[in-house]
């Protein structure tokens, strides 16, 4: 179908204020409608484009909904085994220290199966940027309970709601990694409103700068939605996220450099 447009007279190159980043491919994101993954990809691509780092970037995307990140981002990408992206990125950055290296991981990946790799990469202070998408669920496999699933939250493997006594507590990985000496910048953001998008983008830009300066691990959690897994419309899921996820996973910086 043809694009739909607003007032045609205004659509001139000199009036352009926002367009899809050239660091994204033309492929349609495989994410469900309204999923924050797409927005996070977009912002990451914009940051890479604006920093002029397309030719210097190596991304690592392990198993989860974002395993196909390489289909969408026009940079060199390694698809990694479930949970192992921080180990993979460790080697990339140490062998190619001039390159910009990021991982892009979900909550099951980063906070369950990859806990050891996450903690040790952060503790060594590997000069990488870790993007952690926390939507409290295993999206790719169909909505099972994740390490970050909230108490009482329903999933296909906690159909009566997460029972803390039986299933343990939701894990605040970002708080944990903020305590490690190797992390330099740790923040928790979201991408569901324009203001939050701006903040997340700013955080990523900082992480890019810190990596250039070899400051250590930059860890950006993005609390996100999973409309399909949560069985809500995208707009409802964003509202539910604000009301339920944010109180437990409050947005803001957890660790910032002493002197900026």
């Amino acid at each position: 179908m043809k694009d739909v447009t607003g007032i045609k007279e205004i659509i001139k190159p000199e009036n352009l204020v926002y367009k899809r980043s050239s660091v994204l491919t033309d492929n349609v994101f495989s994410y469900c409608p309204g999923c924050g993954h797409g927005t996070a990809h977009r912002i990451l691509a914009e940051v890479i484009e604006e920093a002029g780092l397309q030719s210097e970037t190596i991304g690592v995307a392990p198993v989860g909904c974002s395993v196909l990140l390489y289909e969408f981002m026009n940079v060199d990408v390694q698809q990694a085994a479930h949970g192992r992206a921080p180990a993979v990125a460790t080697a990339i950055k140490r062998l190619l220290p001039e390159k910009f290296v990021f991982t892009y991981q979900g909550d099951g990946d980063l906070a369950a199966i990859g806990t050891a790799e996450t903690i040790h990469a952060c503790n060594r202070g590997e000069n990488i940027m870790i993007i952690f998408i926390n939507n409290g669920i295993y999206g790719m496999t169909g909505g099972q309970m994740a390490p970050t699933t909230l108490e009482g939250m329903k999933s296909s493997t906690s159909p009566y709601g997460r029972d803390i006594k039986l299933m343990g507590n939701p894990l605040k990985m970002t708080e944990i990694v903020a305590t490690l000496p190797g992390t330099y910048f740790v923040t928790r953001q979201s991408v569901h409103t324009p203001a939050n998008v701006k903040k997340t983008k700013k955080a990523m830009k900082k992480a890019v700068e810190y990596q250039k300066l070899n400051k250590g691990t930059c860890f950006i959690e993005i609390v996100s939605n999973c409309p399909s897994g949560w069985k809500m419309s995208p707009v409802e899921s964003n509202k539910w996220m604000e009301e339920n996820m944010f109180p437990f996973y409050p947005l803001g910086d957890l660790k910032v450099p002493a002197v900026e």
């Binding site: 009036n15 999923c35 409103t193 324009p194």
Partner: peptide, 21 residues
Amino acid sequence: CIGCANCAMVCPDGVITVYKT
């Protein structure tokens, strides 16, 4: 439309281009 680009910023699929004058 005021060309604020809010829509494009939150669009998960990157389908919106914005112009302003």
